[in-house]
């Protein structure tokens, strides 16, 4: 069952086309990975899916009642708040009742390993801690669709392994996830399908089964057109 469908998405900024005719759909319970070099149009696509920017052309079809969680690439929180206050603030925006919010906040902070830092102001968090907090707030309210923009950016090797483990766990729990990354290995590990985006255009779609033989790296290099892209950070 499709949870999201994008038809011919176009986004232009002045004369520049950031996204140019992107069409894809997302099935319930799958993990779709967006892969592409920096500036390929991945984040713009995510912003259109989330309704943060209006497409210049095409459509995003999604049930308005679909609960969506979003973890941004650069986590941006009010620096004067503590980690716990950030979670409390977003839970209030989602209108979670006090009891549910309290329970979820404790569980999620525990899940991302921030229980001990919950009382520290966000301005004192490291990039990795911010990334974990971003992930935790995205899970508030138990969303059906999770949109993760570069979820492992800023994390050290252990953090990255833990984060990918978490994504895998959520996938097993039946969450639908759109994950955006320029790190081949990360996408390869968790995604069911991978959409390669180059210069705003769809450059290829690969299933997990397609990747069994050749591997993603080979396919990606072939698609993108060879050297020059600093994206093989595996």
């Amino acid at each position: 069952m499709k949870i999201l469908e994008c038809c011919g998405l176009v986004k232009t900024y002045g004369r520049t086309k950031a996204v140019d005719g992107l069409s894809f759909s997302v099935e319930k319970g799958e993990v779709l990975g967006f892969l592409g070099p920096n500036g390929a149009g991945k984040t713009t696509t995510i912003k259109m899916i989330l309704g943060l920017t209006r497409p210049s052309g095409g459509k995003v079809l999604i049930d308005r009642n679909t609960k969506t969680g979003y973890s941004p690439e650069t986590p941006y929180f009010h620096p004067f708040l503590t980690g716990h206050e950030v979670m409390r603030f977003y839970s209030r925006l989602q209108k979670l009742d006090r009891q549910t919010a309290g329970r979820q906040i404790a569980e999620l902070l525990e899940l991302v390993g921030l229980s001990g830092a919950a009382g520290i102001r966000v301005r004192n968090y490291s990039k990795g801690m911010l990334q974990r907090l971003a992930f935790a707030q995205a899970l508030l309210g138990d969303p059906e669709l999770l949109v993760l923009d570069e979820p492992t950016s800023g994390l050290d090797a252990v953090g990255r392994i833990e984060m990918l483990g978490l994504i895998g766990r959520l996938k097993r729990e039946g969450k639908t996830i759109i994950m955006n990354s320029h790190i081949l290995g990360d996408v390869e590990k968790v995604a069911d399908r991978i959409l390669i985006i180059v210069n705003g255009k769809p450059a290829g779609m690969a299933d997990r089964s397609d990747l069994a033989g050749a591997g993603l790296e080979e396919m990606f290099v072939k698609t993108v057109g060879g050297a020059g892209h600093a994206c093989a950070d595996t």
């Binding site: 943060l52 941004p72 941006y76 009010h78 977003y90 925006l93």
Partner: peptide, 13 residues
Amino acid sequence: ERKTTHLVLVRGI
């Protein structure tokens, strides 16, 4: 500037 707007607007505000 901080793009805190994103996390607010995606919550249906």
